[in-house]
Write a protein that binds this DNA or RNA. Sequence first.
RNA 1: GCGGCUGUAGCUCAAUGGCAGAGCACUUGACUGUGGAUCAAGGUGUUGUGGGUUCGAGCCCCAUCAGCCGCCCCA
Length: 427
Amino acid sequence: MASKSLIQSVKGTREFYPEEMAQRNFIYEKARQASQMFGYQEWDAPFLETIELYAAKSGEELVKEQSFVFPDRGGDLITLRPELTPSLARMIAQKQNELAFPVRWWSFGPFWRYERPQRGRTREFFQWNVDMLGVNSPEADAELVAIAATFLRLVGLTPQQAAIFVNNRRLMDAQFDALGIPPEKRLDVSNAVDRRSKMEPAKWDEYALELGLSPSQLTGLKQILADYDLWQKSDELVRLFRALEALGVKDYVQFDPNIMRGLLYYTGTVFEAFDVSGSVRRAILGGGRYDNLLRDVGGDPLSGVGFAMGDVVVGILLKEKGLIPPFVPSPAPVLVTVFDDSLWMQSYALAAELRAAGMNVITYPEPAKLPKQFKFADRMGVKITLVLGPDEALAGKVTIKHLVTATQETVSRAQVVQAVQRLLHST
RNA sequence: GCGGCUGUAGCUCAAUGGCAGAGCACUUGACUGUGGAUCAAGGUGUUGUGGGUUCGAGCCCCAUCAGCCGCCCCA
């Protein structure tokens, strides 16, 4: 096996051959389109950060177990960024008095987490982040949900294929209070709710009782989690859904009391998108409102709302549903053949002329038999192939073959550019 | 970090402990001025890697690496 002698890639990293690169760019382009449709600006943060940035705010597990950390040559501990939010908080805090609020920013870049690779999870991935800071309202939350929904629509995922499930932390806290669940148990109970869909009902009941819930509290909790009209008791959610309807994305969004999200810093609206057909069980994207983000890095208190989407899960989904545009091996739709040594430079000059007219053009890199050159053109997905052979050279002409329709014509050298342009536009 | 499954041609996969296989793809030719189609001839290979058991290992055992499934966590 040839790979035996090759040095392996680092575990969990990904190699982007042109086909995979096209897929990554497709996701990037749609993320950008959705972001810009709502007026968000692209930004980015360092890929390398000190470990202190995350130690201050992120969950312990994320820093201790799931980050790539290594000493630099000076002995400082450097982290390959596992998430973007702490960097965002710092950058906002640094310019808190100069920025025009609300800040609407989006970003798409690489992140690293030292986890066990699996389907839908790698150690190196790209993540789309969208945040709005400085406005604390359900309508602002709705805008972020709408951006996520717009992305789903732009990539061709229908509401029947992918849906966004929304809940509200404050609503759930109020419900927990009503059941007499003390505030210090909220986190445990939230985690239990998060885990519920993965456990067998009987085992989950057992687990919930072990957390210290009374049987009546458990019964009450299960009633809450089955109540899909519960959102009507939350003013915030009522306003959120009203705004989603006005924004034209309500068909993608449902209330679900089972959505909690593990992250500590969410304080209000939380949401997650899933593949409804159930092929990939992981969340496509997730986010929510966070109130105290900047305070923790030394800035003035500032509320924000945002979400993040990894490229891996959505990539699997898009591939499965056949939503990735067909891959074209060459970005050039035109190939100029090279007939023989004596006509080689004339072919190159012809190619240069077409390029000067704004077209992407590849040449065959050396003289070769025409069948070989046409075969290559076919494999590259080229639409038009030009032949400048002895007959054409003598007559001052060029033969243009359209590979898609299998038709060809011979035109005078002076008319080649126009003729090729016409052909390209007609298909 | 924990538990389980898998690893054979470039790809998808077969072979009871007893001589390396199929389809697709690839190369060349039939076609010396025209791609896909057809036909013919062909490399298709240290059976992931390193040990062990055995007269003999793709198959059994151990280790290791990688991928996949679950736990944990999350995008």
